[in-house]
Design a protein around this nucleic acid. Structure first.
Lengths: 340, 340
DNA sequence: TAATTAAACAAAACCAGTTTAGCAAAATGA
DNA sequence: TCATTTTGCTAAACTGGTTTTGTTTAATTA
């Protein structure tokens, strides 16, 4: 059980003051006119004894923890996990550590987590906010904490955010189906009032309107058990026999959808074309491969952390609200092939 | 920008000493003989002004951060993400926060991360260790830090750990294939000297030996690109035409394997039976559904955090090394059906 | 009634740093 | 040669808590 050595220990050992050591360690030796002889001596001692300043004490006195709080919807979700992964990497390069956690889209849990981050004195926040957190987010901003919303945003709050161009991406995907002569295109989405889900719906609706096609929307309760979802979709497809293409608003809805379609004995492609919003590894190896709207994850991550870092590096007054909208990729695979 | 109120501010406001306030807040009012009148007054003030002690200051003076460092191989991996999720939940219930990160199985990165956790003064560690970290882990233990290894362990180190019974689970899966009259059972694994991979190989080998079957092992380089893996497996299966069952040592190897098998035009089941070690959501919805060895994730998580908490709650001398081995579940699905 | 004990709180040390203000000695300038 | 500036460093205050030790007053006890 080796006790860690403190700045005070060094001061005693070398018979100099703590402040001198602090200056030297923080590279302010010249600025503070410490002789190079003493500077050398201290640095050597530090090196030999493996001294590392206590981050706790540093944080307490500087008020900075060099920690960024990252709140995603669900860290076990591929999309969010990848986001976290990329954000973390860039954060590290800038000396920041990431504290991350899942909101599960639960307002109460989110409130607790925000409080927790606040308690832990994180320097900044990147948040995928559940619906209805406007007040909490606003109060974070009011406190002077740098906040970047991500994946979704609140139209009524003047905050920085980084989101996908959900509307355009969804419009493109829907239009693709319509252009390929699918005539009854259903949109399967969640019962959710999150901004990104609303945008996806609007994109779909616009494409349908432009092509004079019927709007067919089925909503799945949020947080539904996959088996339940399959049942609901089987029922839906039975009652809507004319549907020849299904566009799913999330990738896991597509998973359940594929299962439902298989259960009904429909063929993809052939009887039914499908598109999923938000690409997934599996879409590329499943038979048939599944056409998807892909979110450029690393780009979204890069933008999010870039915006946050730019806020962290500026004093409160100079911080500008930054709103970033990133375009999606549309990946055409076999599930939307028109069989003649 | 509301400035946070400190214990000193309260002391000044109520004209009493900091220590009195500290005692009251920490529920030691009676023990420290603070009058109930004053106790009331302080608690009310605290409540009205929303005072929360600074965790930083608390940590600095108590030496405890109430943070657990959780290092997994890859947080975007379903298995680890779920583990993290469950561990986090129980940790929270016990007042602990989780700091988590991915090692990517990279020894250098892991070293850095351990250093980082150390710097951040985490109270305890749950680690999925890459091969060759014995020295670092040992030095953590020597420092008196509670450490629980998880998913794999070092035979040469006296540390607590929680692992799956890889040997038995792998033996059972292999035996299942042999019992069902598959005659040429290949084992696809990673070039890795991690304990869990070795155990899986041994389990397979034992079952083959007992049934007098040939041991056919193909090793994929660790961290291989999926496309590369598919190529290698196609080559392997071409050269081993008699193989009628493939047992994959990880779920992502199975993904590539399925793709390779499809490319060769083999049918699952029929031409080829497959089993994957480590279940995956997709195995249940893929056609055919895929037989798998399932790790009881929540049980593994529960055990890991339980062991760590029991160490955290005991003084150094009373801490016992705990070694937990959890049995796996074998989930039979369609990929191992014998077609007559 | 004096000595002892208990009650109720305060003071101060401590955790491990950062930062501001300041001081003595040496160097420079008039 | 004396005032001024520069050099090189230190002391002390501060961050916001916890914990040990001290002190005063009131209540018991002998």
């Amino acid at each position: 059980m080796i006790k860690k050595i403190s700045i005070g220990d060094i001061a005693t050992a070398l018979n100099i003051s703590k402040s001198t050591i602090s200056f030297i360690i923080n590279g302010k030796a010249k600025e503070k006119r410490i002789s190079s002889a003493l500077t050398e001596k201290v640095l050597q001692y530090v090196d030999e004894n493996g001294y590392k300043p206590s981050r706790l004490a540093q944080s307490l006195s500087t008020g900075k923890t060099m920690i960024i709080g990252l709140m995603v919807e669900k860290i076990s979700d591929y999309f969010f996990a990848q986001m976290a992964y990329h954000i973390e990497e860039i954060a590290y390069q800038n000396g920041y550590k990431i504290f991350y956690c899942s909101t599960d889209n639960d307002p109460d849990k989110t409130r607790e987590l925000i409080q927790l981050f606040r308690d832990r004195n994180v320097d900044g926040y990147i948040i995928t906010p559940p619906a209805g957190m406007e007040k909490e987010i606003q109060s974070l901003i009011d406190e002077g904490s740098p906040v970047v919303l991500f994946d979704r945003y609140y139209p009524d709050i003047e905050s920085s955010y980084v989101i996908l161009d959900n509307f355009q991406a969804s419009y493109n995907a829907s239009k693709y189906l319509a252009d390929n002569a699918f005539a009854h295109i259903a949109f399967i989405t969640l019962e959710s009032d999150q901004s990104q889900m609303e945008d996806r719906k609007q994109g779909y609706a616009k494409a349908m309107a432009e092509h004079g096609l019927e709007v067919i929307i089925e909503k799945i309760p949020y947080g539904n058990d996959p088996a339940q979802t399959v049942k609901q979709l089987v029922r839906f497809l039975r009652q809507n026999k004319r549907v020849d293409a299904v566009y799913f608003a999330t990738n896991y809805l597509a998973f359940s959808g594929v299962k439902a379609i298989n259960q009904l004995g429909y063929k993809i492609p052939g009887t039914m074309a499908i598109i999923a919003f938000d690409d997934h590894q599996v879409f590329d190896f499943y038979e048939p491969t599944i056409t998807a709207v892909a979110q450029p994850i690393s780009e979204l991550a890069r933008q999010s952390i870039r915006v946050l870092l730019s806020m962290l590096n500026k004093p409160l007054e100079e911080r500008a609200v930054q709103k970033v909208i990133v375009p999606a990729h549309f990946i055409v695979r076999n599930s939307t092939v028109r069989l003649l």
